[in-house]
């Protein structure tokens, strides 16, 4: 058995179309230890899903190597498939006219289970995840929260050693997202799954769940470590949160001017559309924000409040990339 549950060496994936060449993964080198939840954090289009698809044998790399549970994903794809499963947060793979139970039965049969063995496995998954409430409901009528639980159960049906979770809580409300995170955490703690590779663009999710995190942007791993180690990268920085009002015009221009200030490591904005209020999060190498305030005062933006905040994982990304995860 390999020393790592997942390992990639200079993994590269290029997509070519008639008029465009996209480098989705650019010589990615990363390792995931056994027995951990490893987070892959990055904005949309960073290469997270491409990486998971290569690791789960759905896509071939353009160059480089990737190993899952010690098996080469290109040459030993069938062995890889025996030890993995993939749960994509955006899908509910199954047949809408059939019940949750029937869908789990179908996927169980695809993994060679039948009769009592299959019944027992579905019962175990019910106990683990809590499916009883909607076991006899058709898949098409399940709520988003129920569908996520079903998807997780489907991903565990074959007792995989390594589980890939691609944005597992996307589209969920706070309460349901918390419930799914709790389930995911328990999978490792209870020894149900050996290793989980989780992709997300939710900071909170990664902070709550992951033992180790790799930050990916534009197909490259730009930082790695535990949440604390990553936060240490911004321990000397100062984080300001500035609430401003604007009619929307010129906000991006102001942001670009702020980014030009030498002491500014990164700036991101989030907007509250209804009130016209914008929240600017600025990571700085020094405490003096005179230069920032001057730029804001000269613009059409009206300053409502200025606060200091604790550095978070999001600020690590801001510092490394210069922009927010959702921008």
């Amino acid at each position: 058995m390999s020393s790592y549950a997942i390992e990639t060496v200079d993994l590269t994936r290029v997509f070519r179309s008639k008029d465009r060449v996209t480098i989705a993964l650019d010589k990615v080198n990363f390792r995931v230890r056994y027995g951990v939840i490893h987070g892959l954090l990055g904005p949309n289009g960073a290469g997270k899903t491409t990486l998971i698809r290569i690791l789960s044998t759905l896509l071939l790399p353009t160059s480089g190597e990737a190993y899952v549970y010690g098996y080469d994903v290109v040459r030993e794809a069938s062995k890889v498939r025996e030890v993995i499963n993939l749960v994509s947060g955006e899908d509910r793979p199954g047949y809408g006219l059939l019940t949750t139970y029937d869908n789990l039965k179908y996927y169980g049969m695809l993994y060679g289970m039948k009769g009592g063995e299959l019944e027992e496995r579905i019962r175990e998954l019910d106990e683990l995840i809590g499916l009883r409430e909607f076991m006899d409901k058709e898949l098409s009528v399940l709520s988003t929260g129920m569908a996520k639980k079903y998807s997780l159960a489907r991903g565990l049906i074959n007792k995989p050693k390594i589980l890939f979770l691609d944005e597992p809580t996307i589209g969920l409300d706070v309460e349901n997202a918390r419930a799914i995170r709790h389930l995911i955490k328990n999978l490792i703690e209870d020894g149900v799954i050996e290793t989980i590779l989780l992709t997300s663009h939710y900071m909170k999710e990664v902070e709550d769940l992951c033992d180790k995190v790799s930050i990916i942007d534009r197909g490259r791993i730009i930082a790695e470590g535990t949440v604390e180690e990553l936060k240490n990268k911004v321990s000397d920085e100062v984080v300001y949160v500035i609430h401003v009002y604007s009619n929307g015009k010129g906000v991006d221009e102001v942001l670009n001017r702020l980014r030009e200030i030498e002491a500014v490591s990164g700036v991101k904005k989030s907007a509250t559309q209804a009130t016209g209020e914008y929240v600017l999060r600025i990571v700085m190498e020094e405490e003096d924000i005179t230069g920032i305030l001057k730029i804001l005062e000269r613009s059409d933006l009206r300053i409502k409040r200025v606060d200091r905040d604790e550095a978070s994982l999001e600020d690590v990304f801001l510092k490394l990339v210069g922009r927010g995860l959702d921008e």
Binding site: T57, A77, R81, S88, R92, G94, Y107, L110, Y111, R154
Partner: peptide
């Protein structure tokens, strides 16, 4: 289109 193909291909069948 509905993601069932991905889930199927991963089974190795």
């Amino acid at each position: 289109e509905t993601g069932k193909m991905e889930a199927f291909l991963i089974t190795g069948r």
